[in-house]
Amino acid sequence: MTDRASARAAKTALAARLAADPGVAAVGLARQDAEYVVRVDLTEAGVGSRVPRDVDGVRVVTHVIGTVRPL
């Protein structure tokens, strides 16, 4: 089971790696199946192939949320 500290470290590393990718809307933490995972919100499904499935042993999940626009 992944603890929160490990997940935070993985999130920081992945956020830095994906910072310049225009298809990535957000990188955060989530609870899934009783453990912490890194959640990556994407603007389109095709971007998911560029996101690793795990970072330093922490599982990464992706969700397509569409284009983000200001209100």
Rank of each mutant, 00 (worst) to 15 (best):
Met1Leu: 12
Met1Glu: 11
Thr2Gly: 08
Thr2His: 09
Asp3Asn: 14
Ala5His: 07
Ser6Glu: 08
Ser6Phe: 00
Ser6Tyr: 00
Ala7Cys: 10
Ala7Ile: 09
Arg8Phe: 05
Arg8Leu: 14
Ala9Ser: 14
Ala9Thr: 14
Ala9Phe: 04
Ala9Asp: 10
Ala9Cys: 01
Ala9Gly: 08
Ala9Asn: 11
Ala10Phe: 03
Ala10Tyr: 03
Lys11Arg: 15
Ala13Trp: 00
Leu14Gln: 02
Ala15His: 07
Ala16Pro: 03
Ala16Asn: 14
Ala16Gly: 15
Arg17Trp: 10
Arg17Glu: 15
Leu18Trp: 02
Leu18Arg: 01
Leu18Tyr: 07
Ala19Glu: 11
Ala19Leu: 02
Asp21Tyr: 01
Asp21Ser: 07
Pro22Asp: 05
Pro22Lys: 09
Gly23Val: 06
Gly23Met: 08
Val24Gly: 08
Val24Leu: 01
Ala25Pro: 04
Ala25Gln: 15
Ala26Ser: 13
Ala26Leu: 01
Ala26Ile: 00
Val27Tyr: 01
Val27Ile: 07
Val27Asn: 04
Leu29Lys: 07
Leu29Gly: 09
Ala30Gln: 11
Arg31Trp: 00
Asp33Pro: 01
Ala34Gly: 13
Ala34Phe: 13
Ala34Ser: 13
Ala34Leu: 12
Glu35Cys: 05
Tyr36Thr: 06
Tyr36Cys: 02
Val37Arg: 04
Val38Ala: 09
Val38Tyr: 07
Val38Arg: 03
Val38Cys: 05
Arg39Val: 10
Arg39His: 00
Val40Ala: 06
Asp41Ala: 14
Asp41Glu: 14
Asp41Arg: 12
Leu42Arg: 00
Leu42Met: 07
Thr43Ala: 11
Thr43Gly: 15
Thr43Pro: 03
Thr43Arg: 15
Thr43Lys: 13
Glu44Val: 08
Glu44Cys: 04
Ala45Thr: 13
Ala45Trp: 02
Ala45Phe: 12
Ala45Pro: 10
Ala45Asn: 09
Gly46Lys: 07
Gly46Pro: 07
Gly46Tyr: 04
Gly46Thr: 11
Val47Asn: 08
Val47Trp: 02
Val47Glu: 12
Gly48Thr: 03
Gly48Tyr: 03
Gly48Arg: 06
Ser49Cys: 00
Ser49Arg: 15
Ser49Gly: 10
Ser49Gln: 13
Val51Tyr: 05
Val51His: 09
Val51Cys: 04
Val51Lys: 02
Pro52Asn: 06
Arg53Leu: 12
Asp54Asn: 13
Val55Pro: 09
Val55Met: 06
Asp56Cys: 02
Asp56Tyr: 05
Asp56Met: 05
Asp56Thr: 10
Gly57Thr: 08
Gly57Val: 10
Val58Arg: 05
Arg59Ile: 02
Arg59Tyr: 02
Val60Phe: 05
Val60Met: 07
Val61Asn: 08
Val61Arg: 09
Thr62Arg: 05
Thr62Glu: 09
His63Glu: 15
Val64Gln: 04
Val64Asp: 03
Ile65Thr: 15
Gly66His: 09
Thr67Phe: 06
Val68Leu: 12
Val68Ser: 06
Arg69His: 11
Arg69Thr: 14
Arg69Asn: 08
Arg69Lys: 12
Arg69Met: 10
Pro70Phe: 13
Leu71Pro: 15
Leu71Gly: 13
